[in-house]
Simulated assay, not measured.
Amino acid sequence: MPRTPPSHPEVSHPEASRRAVLGAALAGLATPALAQTPWPSRPIRIVVPFPAGGGTDAVARALAERLAPRLGQAVIVENRAGSGGAIGSEAVARAAPDGHTLLMNGNNIATYPLIFRQLGFDPLRDIVPVGMVAVAPIVLVVGRRSPYRTLADYIAAAKAEPEKIDYASAGVGSANHFAGQLLSQAAGIRLTHVPYRGTAQAMTDVISGNVASAILTLGSVTEFLRDGQMRVLGVAGPARSRLAPQVPTFEEQGVRNYDANIRYLLAAPRGVPDPIMQRLGTELAAVVQDPSLEALFNAQGFEKLWVDGPATARTLREEFAAWAPIARDAGIEPQ
């Protein structure tokens, strides 16, 4: 259909035209200036939602030291502990999405909706991973006087007397707790969970025989394995740990699909501009390849790992879907 001509002729106003041209020119000058705002423009905070001295804190501090010179700004680690990591994680989710506030946490952040009823953020939506950087192998350990010499001994005893064998973890809803429930399901046994407030007392009670076993990180028990106070029955994951290559995996010993290892990731609030996320990802990937970082990680009980942000986000979604039925079967309810 032909366009209907206007009923009144259009009139050009010189002053209006000059204002329009001037406005366009100013906009053209302002846009590049905004686009070139330097980042980072001030120190960067990496929030660790756990107390200082733990595994997450150690990984964050190692990264901060190496990221700072690459980014040209100080990188400060801030510990904001409480509610199993939820308080500090929520603080980051609510922070300004300008790339100056980041989160260091484990992949078990995906289980938060399964254990916290009043969670003030969605960890799968409001936190955007930059990348996964390290893994802490999970192991099943018993005391040196334990009758269980192998994983086969342990599983046979658990099948003979369901719920008689107990295992210690770092608390209800912890990564260790979920790992124990996954072992029960994967091995077809029923274990009794004994939650502790952290791992120190749990290790003491395993050594003394007050609790039959514990599911802990390899790094946290290395000293006790070395001096013979503990015995390790298996390591989680698809392959043996480079930190203890003599320890067989659960898979090798007949327990299929048992991967409960803790993987550490750096993340940002949702909404950080793509160029900043890309820069963070590039610098983080370079830091992870630093030989000095690998040596430090190994000494602390971690193995280096690099998974980029989008792949890490997919992994977290998959883990939530995988852990949800395990939490339901174990009677783990949001508190």
Rank of each mutant, 00 (worst) to 15 (best):
E303D: 10
Q289G: 06
R117I: 00
R145Y: 13
G106M: 08
G72D: 02
R149P: 05
E15Q: 13
Q246T: 04
V92E: 04
P273M: 05
L191K: 06
V221G: 01
P9C: 06
A239S: 15
R117F: 06
P147E: 14
A286M: 08
G180N: 07
A30D: 03
P195W: 12
P51E: 12
D308W: 05
Q335L: 14
A244L: 05
P269G: 04
T150E: 11
T37C: 09
V255Y: 11
G131T: 02
N79M: 08
A330D: 04
I109E: 03
A74S: 15
L63R: 07
T31H: 04
G309K: 10
S169F: 06
G271F: 10
I276A: 06
V11Y: 12
L182V: 10
P6R: 15
T249Q: 08
T101W: 07
A179Q: 07
F178W: 03
V139A: 03
E78W: 02
L119M: 13
L182I: 12
L284P: 02
L67N: 02
Q278H: 13
A33E: 04
W39D: 01
P334H: 07
A86P: 07
S184Q: 13
K159R: 15
I44V: 14
N108F: 15
F116W: 15
A179K: 04
N176R: 04
R317G: 14
F320R: 14
S292N: 13
G171H: 05
S174C: 08
G309C: 05
A81W: 11
K159E: 14
P38N: 06
A187K: 08
P129N: 11
P269I: 01
Q229G: 13
F224K: 13
A60W: 09
V307I: 13
A170L: 14
R66P: 05
R190N: 12
L124K: 02
Q201P: 01
L266C: 07
P137L: 00
A186W: 05
A91I: 05
T56I: 07
L218M: 06
A285M: 07
N261V: 01
I207Y: 06
R270H: 14
V206A: 02
T249V: 03
R149G: 15
A152G: 12
T192I: 00
G82P: 14
P51T: 02
Q73C: 04
Y112K: 07
T111L: 08
A91S: 14
E318C: 00
A311T: 10
N79A: 09
T37I: 08
G55A: 13
V128D: 09
P69G: 09
V194S: 11
A286P: 10
W306Q: 06
Y196A: 03
F224Y: 15
G219A: 08
H193A: 14
L29I: 03
V139L: 04
V172N: 12
G198F: 09
E318F: 00
G254S: 07
P310H: 10
A156C: 09
A168L: 07
V139N: 03
I276S: 03
A295V: 01
F297I: 00
D274V: 08
P38A: 12
E283C: 03
I127C: 05
V255W: 09
